[in-house]
C-alpha cells in the first residue's frame, strides 16, 4: 500500500495500491468531501494508471492543486519509485460469531503457560485469542510459535514478536505474518484486539486507517487507561469507534472500564506470581460480560 502525504488539499493523506499498472483501494483520508472522494475511488477501482493519469492531472480546486491532481502526483511518484510502498497493517477478521471466548497475553515464550491455557481453556470456550507478546527475550520462542501454529491459535503480534528472532525461519515468518489487529464478533458486539501502541511506529501505519482511532485513543490519549483525567474526551470519541469493545495488553495490568457504550479491557500477562490468568468474554442474555479469571491447573 502507498501512503502519500498531500499538500494544499483538505485530506492530509491519500492511500492506494498499485499492482503492476492497476490502481486499487484509493482512499482520500482525514478530511475533504467524503462523497466526492468515495466516488473518485469507485470510478478508479481496478483501472490502468496510464488511462487515469490524464484524467486526474492538472485539475485545480485550491492552492493550485486538487484531490485528483494530488493523486496523479502520488501515482507518478510511485511509478517512478520515489514513493515507497508501506507494509500493510495486517488485520485478522474472524467472521464466525462467538458466544464465549478467552483472551490471554504476554506469553513471552512461556511454553508451559501456553500449553496449560490451551489444555484448560479450549474445552470451555469457542476460541482462544492471544495478544502479544507470544515470544520473549528469554523464552522458548520456537516451541511456543510451533504450539500456536499446531493449535491454530489466533494471535496478534506484539513488539517482541516483530523483533526477536526465532531459530527456525518458518517460525520467524509466521511471526512476521501475524496480524496486528484481530476483530471478532461476540453476540451482537464487535471486538477489536491488539497488543500495544508499537503499531503506530510501523511504516504502514496511518492515523486515518481502520482501527487507528481506537488504538490512538487507548495508547496515546488515555495512556492505556492510566490517564483518567481525559476520560470525558475518550468517552466523546467512542461515538466515532467502529467497534463495541477494545482489548489491549502491554502494560502488565488487568483493567476493565466502560466509557460511553464501549468496553476497554486491559489484558495482563498470562502468568504472574505462579498463576495463570485470562480474560473471559461471554455474550449472555443480550449482554457482553467480561471477567478476569485465574486458571486452575491440576
Amino acid at each position: 500500500m502507498y501512503i502519500y502525504r498531500t499538500t494544499g488539499i483538505c485530506p492530509p493523506e491519500i492511500h492506494f495500491r498499485l499492482t503492476g499498472n492497476t490502481l486499487t483501494g484509493v482512499r482520500f483520508v482525514g478530511g475533504g468531501c467524503r462523497g466526492n472522494a468515495q466516488l473518485i475511488s469507485r470510478l478508479l477501482e481496478g483501472r490502468d494508471v496510464d488511462e487515469v493519469l490524464p484524467l486526474l492531472k492538472g485539475i485545480v480546486c485550491r492552492n493550485d492543486t486538487s484531490c485528483p491532481d494530488q493523486l496523479a502526483r502520488a501515482i507518478e511518484l510511485a511509478c517512478e519509485g520515489q514513493l515507497r510502498a508501506s507494509e500493510e497493517i495486517r488485520i485478522y477478521e474472524d467472521t464466525t460469531p462467538r458466544l464465549k471466548v478467552a483472551v490471554i497475553s504476554g506469553v513471552e515464550g512461556n511454553l508451559a503457560a501456553l500449553r496449560n491455557c490451551v489444555a484448560a481453556l479450549r474445552p470451555k470456550v469457542e476460541e482462544l485469542y492471544c495478544l502479544g507478546n507470544l515470544t520473549g527475550p528469554s523464552g522458548d520462542n520456537d516451541a511456543v510459535v510451533e504450539l500456536a501454529r499446531k493449535e491454530k491459535i489466533i494471535f496478534a503480534a506484539g513488539p517482541y514478536d516483530r523483533t526477536l528472532p526465532c531459530k527456525k525461519p518458518e517460525n520467524q515468518d509466521r511471526l512476521l505474518q501475524a496480524p496486528l489487529f484481530i476483530v471478532f464478533s461476540l453476540g451482537e458486539k464487535r471486538i477489536l484486539a491488539f497488543t500495544s501502541g508499537f503499531i503506530q511506529e510501523l511504516e504502514g501505519f496511518s492515523d486515518f486507517s481502520l482501527y487507528s482511532l481506537e488504538l490512538l485513543m487507548v495508547c496515546n490519549l488515555s495512556d492505556y487507561l492510566r490517564n483518567k483525567e481525559v476520560y470525558p474526551a475518550l468517552r466523546t470519541m467512542t461515538e466515532q469507534f467502529s467497534v463495541d469493545a477494545v482489548l489491549f495488553a502491554g502494560t502488565g495490568a488487568w483493567e476493565h472500564v466502560r466509557l460511553g457504550s464501549v468496553d476497554f479491557v486491559n489484558v495482563g500477562p498470562v502468568e504472574a506470581g505462579g498463576v495463570y490468568q485470562y480474560a473471559l468474554l461471554c455474550w449472555d442474555r443480550e449482554q457482553l460480560e467480561i471477567s478476569f479469571r485465574i486458571l486452575e491447573v491440576r
Binding site: 482525514g30 482511532l213 481525559v230 474526551a233
Partner: peptide, 20 residues
Amino acid sequence: WDLRTREGIKRFTELKAKSL
C-alpha cells in the same frame, strides 16, 4: 486540532485538556 491524529492528541495533552 483533530483529536483523531497523533499531533492533535499531543497538543490536547500539552494543554492538559480533558473534554471536548
